[in-house]
Protein backbone atom coordinates (compact mmCIF):
# COMPACT_ATOMS: atom_id res chain seq x y z
CA UNK A 1 0.00 0.00 0.00
CA UNK A 2 1.21 3.47 -0.92
CA UNK A 3 0.18 4.86 2.44
CA UNK A 4 2.10 2.23 4.39
CA UNK A 5 5.14 2.47 2.14
CA UNK A 6 5.41 6.22 2.69
CA UNK A 7 4.79 5.81 6.40
CA UNK A 8 7.57 3.22 6.67
CA UNK A 9 10.03 5.88 5.55
CA UNK A 10 11.40 3.92 2.60
CA UNK A 11 12.01 5.68 -0.72
CA UNK A 12 8.78 5.12 -2.63
CA UNK A 13 8.29 4.73 -6.37
CA UNK A 14 5.06 5.45 -8.23
CA UNK A 15 4.44 5.57 -11.94
CA UNK A 16 1.66 6.54 -14.28
CA UNK A 17 -0.46 5.43 -17.22
CA UNK A 18 -2.86 7.31 -19.46
CA UNK A 19 -6.09 5.63 -20.62
CA UNK A 20 -6.59 5.24 -24.37
CA UNK A 21 -8.66 7.37 -26.68
CA UNK A 22 -11.16 4.62 -27.33
CA UNK A 23 -11.91 1.30 -25.69
CA UNK A 24 -8.83 -0.73 -26.63
CA UNK A 25 -7.37 -1.52 -23.21
CA UNK A 26 -4.85 -4.21 -24.15
CA UNK A 27 -1.93 -1.86 -24.52
CA UNK A 28 -2.20 -0.01 -21.24
CA UNK A 29 -3.01 -3.14 -19.28
CA UNK A 30 0.12 -4.76 -20.66
CA UNK A 31 2.03 -1.58 -19.81
CA UNK A 32 0.70 -1.92 -16.26
CA UNK A 33 2.17 -5.43 -16.11
CA UNK A 34 5.66 -3.89 -16.25
CA UNK A 35 4.89 -2.04 -13.03
CA UNK A 36 3.85 -5.11 -11.04
CA UNK A 37 6.10 -5.58 -8.08
CA UNK A 38 8.33 -2.73 -9.24
CA UNK A 39 6.37 0.32 -8.12
CA UNK A 40 4.16 0.96 -5.14
CA UNK A 41 1.22 2.46 -7.05
CA UNK A 42 0.27 3.65 -10.52
CA UNK A 43 -1.48 6.93 -11.23
CA UNK A 44 -4.17 6.94 -13.87
CA UNK A 45 -4.49 10.31 -15.57
CA UNK A 46 -7.85 12.07 -15.91
CA UNK A 47 -8.21 13.34 -19.48
CA UNK A 48 -4.62 14.53 -19.37
CA UNK A 49 -3.93 17.76 -21.26
CA UNK A 50 -7.73 18.08 -21.65
CA UNK A 51 -7.78 15.38 -24.33
CA UNK A 52 -11.04 13.41 -24.26
CA UNK A 53 -10.26 9.81 -23.37
CA UNK A 54 -11.58 6.79 -21.57
CA UNK A 55 -11.98 7.53 -17.86
CA UNK A 56 -9.56 7.25 -15.00
CA UNK A 57 -12.12 5.62 -12.70
CA UNK A 58 -12.80 2.60 -14.95
CA UNK A 59 -9.08 2.19 -15.65
CA UNK A 60 -8.28 2.32 -11.93
CA UNK A 61 -10.77 -0.48 -11.33
CA UNK A 62 -9.17 -2.60 -14.05
CA UNK A 63 -5.81 -2.05 -12.37
CA UNK A 64 -7.26 -3.20 -9.03
CA UNK A 65 -8.49 -6.35 -10.79
CA UNK A 66 -5.10 -7.01 -12.28
CA UNK A 67 -3.35 -6.60 -8.94
CA UNK A 68 -1.85 -3.14 -9.42
CA UNK A 69 -2.57 -0.45 -6.83
CA UNK A 70 -3.97 2.62 -8.59
CA UNK A 71 -3.92 6.32 -7.75
CA UNK A 72 -7.15 7.83 -9.07
CA UNK A 73 -6.33 11.23 -10.55
CA UNK A 74 -9.30 13.52 -10.47
CA UNK A 75 -9.40 17.03 -11.86
CA UNK A 76 -11.82 19.91 -11.32
CA UNK A 77 -12.10 20.63 -15.04
CA UNK A 78 -15.04 18.48 -16.10
CA UNK A 79 -17.36 17.90 -13.16
CA UNK A 80 -19.23 20.04 -10.70
CA UNK A 81 -19.07 19.33 -6.96
CA UNK A 82 -21.90 16.78 -7.09
CA UNK A 83 -20.26 14.68 -9.80
CA UNK A 84 -16.81 14.96 -8.18
CA UNK A 85 -18.02 13.74 -4.80
CA UNK A 86 -20.12 11.05 -6.43
CA UNK A 87 -17.18 9.73 -8.49
CA UNK A 88 -15.01 9.72 -5.37
CA UNK A 89 -17.58 7.62 -3.51
CA UNK A 90 -17.82 5.36 -6.57
CA UNK A 91 -14.04 4.99 -6.53
CA UNK A 92 -14.19 3.77 -2.96
CA UNK A 93 -16.71 1.01 -3.66
CA UNK A 94 -14.60 -0.03 -6.64
CA UNK A 95 -11.69 -0.69 -4.30
CA UNK A 96 -9.71 2.45 -5.07
CA UNK A 97 -7.99 3.93 -2.02
CA UNK A 98 -5.57 6.55 -3.37
CA UNK A 99 -6.65 9.87 -4.82
CA UNK A 100 -4.63 12.58 -6.51
CA UNK A 101 -6.53 15.85 -6.63
CA UNK A 102 -5.63 18.33 -9.38
CA UNK A 103 -7.05 21.51 -10.87
CA UNK A 104 -6.77 20.17 -14.43
CA UNK A 105 -5.63 21.84 -17.62
CA UNK A 106 -7.92 24.28 -19.37
CA UNK A 107 -10.04 22.66 -22.15
CA UNK A 108 -8.70 25.30 -24.52
CA UNK A 109 -5.41 23.34 -24.54
CA UNK A 110 -7.03 20.02 -25.41
CA UNK A 111 -8.56 18.28 -28.43
CA UNK A 112 -11.99 19.90 -28.08
CA UNK A 113 -11.42 23.53 -27.14
CA UNK A 114 -15.18 24.23 -27.42
CA UNK A 115 -15.86 22.25 -24.21
CA UNK A 116 -17.17 24.17 -21.21
CA UNK A 117 -14.57 24.54 -18.46
CA UNK A 118 -16.32 23.59 -15.21
CA UNK A 119 -13.95 24.40 -12.30
CA UNK A 120 -16.90 24.54 -9.89
CA UNK A 121 -14.28 23.74 -7.25
CA UNK A 122 -10.55 24.27 -7.23
CA UNK A 123 -8.05 21.69 -6.01
CA UNK A 124 -7.98 23.08 -2.45
CA UNK A 125 -11.76 23.04 -2.17
CA UNK A 126 -11.96 19.50 -3.58
CA UNK A 127 -9.39 18.29 -1.05
CA UNK A 128 -11.55 19.80 1.68
CA UNK A 129 -14.62 18.13 0.22
CA UNK A 130 -12.92 14.71 0.36
CA UNK A 131 -11.81 15.39 3.92
CA UNK A 132 -15.46 15.99 4.81
CA UNK A 133 -16.62 12.84 3.00
CA UNK A 134 -14.17 10.93 5.18
CA UNK A 135 -15.77 12.52 8.21
CA UNK A 136 -19.15 11.21 7.06
CA UNK A 137 -20.57 14.34 5.49
CA UNK A 138 -20.83 15.70 1.98
CA UNK A 139 -19.69 19.19 1.09
CA UNK A 140 -23.06 20.69 1.91
CA UNK A 141 -23.01 19.09 5.36
CA UNK A 142 -25.51 16.32 4.60
CA UNK A 143 -24.81 13.06 6.43
CA UNK A 144 -23.54 10.03 4.52
CA UNK A 145 -25.18 6.71 5.28
CA UNK A 146 -23.10 4.06 6.98
CA UNK A 147 -19.33 3.99 7.34
CA UNK A 148 -17.56 6.87 5.62
CA UNK A 149 -14.91 6.13 2.97
CA UNK A 150 -11.23 6.37 3.82
CA UNK A 151 -8.68 7.49 1.26
CA UNK A 152 -5.01 8.31 1.02
CA UNK A 153 -5.15 11.66 -0.64
CA UNK A 154 -2.47 13.46 -2.58
CA UNK A 155 -2.00 16.68 -4.47
CA UNK A 156 0.50 18.17 -6.89
CA UNK A 157 3.07 20.92 -6.72
CA UNK A 158 5.25 22.57 -9.31
CA UNK A 159 8.73 23.08 -7.83
CA UNK A 160 9.90 24.92 -10.95
CA UNK A 161 7.17 27.58 -10.82
CA UNK A 162 8.37 31.14 -11.13
CA UNK A 163 7.67 32.91 -8.82
CA UNK A 164 7.71 30.00 -6.37
CA UNK A 165 6.08 31.63 -3.36
CA UNK A 166 2.47 31.47 -4.66
CA UNK A 167 3.02 27.71 -5.32
CA UNK A 168 4.25 27.23 -1.77
CA UNK A 169 1.33 29.19 -0.33
CA UNK A 170 -1.02 26.95 -2.30
CA UNK A 171 0.86 23.82 -1.22
CA UNK A 172 0.37 24.84 2.38
CA UNK A 173 -3.33 25.36 1.76
CA UNK A 174 -3.56 21.92 0.18
CA UNK A 175 -1.98 20.39 3.28
CA UNK A 176 -4.41 22.28 5.49
CA UNK A 177 -7.23 20.99 3.26
CA UNK A 178 -6.12 17.38 3.75
CA UNK A 179 -3.34 16.51 1.28
CA UNK A 180 -1.24 13.67 2.73
CA UNK A 181 1.37 13.42 -0.03
CA UNK A 182 2.58 15.37 -3.04
CA UNK A 183 3.72 14.36 -6.48
CA UNK A 184 5.66 17.03 -8.29
CA UNK A 185 5.77 18.31 -11.83
CA UNK A 186 8.71 16.96 -13.84
CA UNK A 187 12.12 17.96 -12.48
CA UNK A 188 15.36 18.07 -14.49
CA UNK A 189 17.31 20.49 -12.30
CA UNK A 190 18.24 18.82 -9.00
CA UNK A 191 19.69 22.02 -7.55
CA UNK A 192 16.53 23.99 -8.09
CA UNK A 193 14.55 21.12 -6.57
CA UNK A 194 16.87 21.10 -3.56
CA UNK A 195 16.12 24.78 -3.00
CA UNK A 196 12.42 24.09 -3.24
CA UNK A 197 12.63 21.24 -0.74
CA UNK A 198 14.49 23.50 1.66
CA UNK A 199 11.60 25.97 1.51
CA UNK A 200 8.97 23.32 2.27
CA UNK A 201 11.02 21.47 4.86
CA UNK A 202 8.69 22.31 7.73
CA UNK A 203 5.59 20.97 6.00
CA UNK A 204 6.26 17.38 6.99
CA UNK A 205 4.32 15.84 4.10
CA UNK A 206 6.04 13.33 1.79
CA UNK A 207 7.02 14.62 -1.64
CA UNK A 208 7.52 12.30 -4.62
CA UNK A 209 9.64 14.08 -7.20
CA UNK A 210 8.33 13.90 -10.77
CA UNK A 211 10.46 12.37 -13.51
CA UNK A 212 9.24 12.44 -17.09
CA UNK A 213 11.18 10.07 -19.36
CA UNK A 214 12.81 12.17 -22.07
CA UNK A 215 12.03 10.67 -25.44
CA UNK A 216 13.93 13.05 -27.70
CA UNK A 217 15.61 16.44 -27.85
CA UNK A 218 12.52 17.76 -29.62
CA UNK A 219 10.32 16.71 -26.74
CA UNK A 220 12.64 18.45 -24.28
CA UNK A 221 12.50 21.66 -26.28
CA UNK A 222 8.73 21.38 -26.53
CA UNK A 223 8.43 21.07 -22.76
CA UNK A 224 10.76 24.01 -22.22
CA UNK A 225 8.57 26.12 -24.41
CA UNK A 226 5.14 24.88 -23.38
CA UNK A 227 5.13 23.25 -19.96
CA UNK A 228 5.02 25.65 -17.07
CA UNK A 229 7.84 25.24 -14.55
CA UNK A 230 9.62 22.48 -16.50
CA UNK A 231 13.09 23.25 -17.76
CA UNK A 232 15.37 20.70 -19.38
CA UNK A 233 18.91 22.14 -19.26
CA UNK A 234 20.86 22.34 -22.53
CA UNK A 235 23.45 19.66 -21.63
CA UNK A 236 20.62 17.11 -21.24
CA UNK A 237 19.12 18.13 -24.57
CA UNK A 238 22.51 17.79 -26.22
CA UNK A 239 22.98 14.37 -24.67
CA UNK A 240 19.68 13.23 -26.18
CA UNK A 241 20.50 14.83 -29.48
CA UNK A 242 23.84 13.07 -29.85
CA UNK A 243 22.49 9.52 -29.70
CA UNK A 244 21.05 7.69 -32.69
CA UNK A 245 17.32 7.18 -32.81
CA UNK A 246 17.51 3.51 -31.81
CA UNK A 247 19.57 4.35 -28.75
CA UNK A 248 17.25 7.07 -27.44
CA UNK A 249 15.46 4.60 -25.17
CA UNK A 250 18.71 3.62 -23.47
CA UNK A 251 19.78 7.24 -23.13
CA UNK A 252 16.40 8.13 -21.66
CA UNK A 253 16.79 5.39 -19.06
CA UNK A 254 20.32 6.55 -18.26
CA UNK A 255 19.26 10.19 -17.77
CA UNK A 256 16.23 9.30 -15.65
CA UNK A 257 18.28 6.99 -13.45
CA UNK A 258 20.96 9.62 -13.00
CA UNK A 259 18.35 12.23 -12.03
CA UNK A 260 16.77 9.85 -9.54
CA UNK A 261 20.14 9.16 -7.92
CA UNK A 262 20.74 12.91 -7.60
CA UNK A 263 17.26 13.62 -6.26
CA UNK A 264 16.88 10.61 -4.00
CA UNK A 265 18.35 12.19 -0.90
CA UNK A 266 16.15 15.24 -1.17
CA UNK A 267 12.65 13.77 -0.92
CA UNK A 268 10.57 10.75 0.03
CA UNK A 269 10.01 9.15 -3.34
CA UNK A 270 9.87 9.42 -7.08
CA UNK A 271 6.92 9.55 -9.44
CA UNK A 272 7.96 8.35 -12.90
CA UNK A 273 5.82 9.51 -15.79
CA UNK A 274 6.83 7.28 -18.72
CA UNK A 275 4.27 8.66 -21.21
CA UNK A 276 3.75 5.28 -22.84
CA UNK A 277 7.27 3.98 -22.15
CA UNK A 278 6.11 1.95 -19.15
CA UNK A 279 8.25 -0.98 -20.30
CA UNK A 280 11.34 1.11 -19.56
CA UNK A 281 10.41 1.86 -15.94
CA UNK A 282 11.89 -1.38 -14.48
CA UNK A 283 15.18 -0.63 -16.25
CA UNK A 284 15.19 2.95 -14.92
CA UNK A 285 14.72 1.64 -11.40
CA UNK A 286 17.43 -0.95 -11.84
CA UNK A 287 19.87 1.64 -13.18
CA UNK A 288 18.97 3.98 -10.34
CA UNK A 289 19.70 1.25 -7.83
CA UNK A 290 16.14 1.09 -6.52
Amino acid sequence: MLFEALKSGKFVVTSEIGPPKGVEMREILSEAEFFKGKVEAVNVTDLQSSVMKLGSLATCRLLVESGVEPVFQITCRDRNRLALQSDILSAYVLGIRNLLILTGDHPKLGDDPAAKPVFDLDSVQLLEAVKKLQEGEDMAGNKLEGEPPKFFMGAVVNPGADPIEPQIIKMEKKIKAGAQFFQSQAVYEPEKFAQFMKKVKGFDVPVLVGIVLLKSAGMARYMNKNVSGVYVPDPLIEEMEKVEKEKRGEKSIEIAARLIRELKGLCQGVHIMPLGWGNKVPKVLEAAGL
Binding site: T103, H106, L109, D122, V124, N158, A161, P166, K170
Partner: peptide, 27 residues
Protein backbone atom coordinates in the same frame (compact mmCIF):
# COMPACT_ATOMS: atom_id res chain seq x y z
CA UNK B 1 -9.26 31.53 -16.95
CA UNK B 2 -10.38 28.80 -14.53
CA UNK B 3 -11.92 31.14 -11.96
CA UNK B 4 -9.77 29.59 -9.20
CA UNK B 5 -10.22 31.03 -5.72
CA UNK B 6 -7.21 29.61 -3.86
CA UNK B 7 -4.13 30.52 -5.83
CA UNK B 8 -2.53 29.83 -9.19
CA UNK B 9 -2.78 26.50 -10.99
CA UNK B 10 0.28 24.64 -12.22
CA UNK B 11 -0.08 26.34 -15.59
CA UNK B 12 0.92 29.77 -14.32
CA UNK B 13 4.29 30.61 -15.81
CA UNK B 14 6.35 33.73 -15.18
CA UNK B 15 3.18 35.64 -14.43
CA UNK B 16 1.33 34.44 -17.53
CA UNK B 17 -1.62 32.11 -18.09
CA UNK B 18 -1.43 28.62 -19.64
CA UNK B 19 -4.36 29.45 -21.91
CA UNK B 20 -2.60 32.37 -23.57
CA UNK B 21 0.98 33.42 -22.83
CA UNK B 22 0.00 37.01 -23.62
CA UNK B 23 -2.49 36.99 -20.79
CA UNK B 24 -1.55 37.83 -17.21
CA UNK B 25 -2.11 35.15 -14.59
CA UNK B 26 -4.64 36.75 -12.23
CA UNK B 27 -3.07 34.96 -9.28
Amino acid sequence: SKGLLNGPCGGSSEGKCEVDPERDCAW
